[in-house]
Amino acid sequence: MEMRQDRTFKIMLWLGGISFFLLLLLIFILLFKESLYSINAFGIKFITGKVWDPVNEKFGLFPFFVGTILTSFISLFISLPFSLSLALLLSVYYKEGFINKVLSTTTELLAGIPSVIYGFWGLFFLVPLIRKVEIKLRIPPYGVGILTASLILAIMIIPYISSISKEVIKMVPQDLIEAGLSLGSTTWEVVKKVILPYCRSGIFAGILLGFGRAFGETMAVTMVIGNSNFVPENIFSPANTMASVIANEFTEATKDIHLSALIQIGLWLFVLSVIVNLIGSFIVKRYKIR
């Protein structure tokens, strides 16, 4: 009886593992299958096409690709000095104590605020601010647009990048750091010559995963990007990202081809996130082994 119980239990464990695998496979297959209609209809033009016009059944995701890439890169760029400073501060300069407590709590809270609240806040706080800037610059004062979305995104990915980078920096062997210091180097020189070289690829992984976060982020972006289906002209232009166009149009898509096109965008987001996360977690894992 006891042995039979064990056999059943082991079978259950395997079933759990296998069904998890099948579930992921199912996700991919479902996304792919539902995208097929639009893949067949537009082929490669779906990716290169610059026009997204559901009414006339023209679907090209290029404008959203540009929107996604712009917001992700700008937000990464903005957040980097903050994220990396935080990582260094928490892992090198103030490994414990009051300042550490305050700032690690800050990052935790920043990570915990729901995306939709960032978006709401952006709508009421950042958008008017940007509008004022735009008036000063004598450009159309939309307030919403690429830059606004990037600013919000930057705030949202700071905790993400800083916590991964912090973990990576913490894996630098203490004796290496002490060796550096004992040779008469200043803390900064140790950071630059010992810590950063040691962690370069790990921090890169952190940034990559932060990028993964940024391009998949939906709500906050949807709320402040202006939802325009045209290729953005500059960083103040209203636009759409791949994620935000899905959020905007999915429930309103009455035509099958429109729905299929939106799901195909989702498929690309899925594929992109898989690639980014595979590379990122592979690098981070190599650190853990070392």
Binding site: F20, F21, L24, L26, I27, L30, L31, E34, S115, L209, G212, F215, G216, E217, T218, A243, I246, A247, F250, L262, I263, G266, L269, F270, S273, V274, V276, N277, L278, G280, S281
Partner: peptide, 21 residues
């Protein structure tokens, strides 16, 4: 590895999956 991958899938895609499933 797949667990990590699933963790990185954008939330809007999860919405599509809930819809399709």
């Amino acid at each position: 590895i797949l667990v990590n991958v699933l963790q990185g899938v954008p939330s809007i895609v999860m919405g599509i999956i809930g819809y399709l499933l």
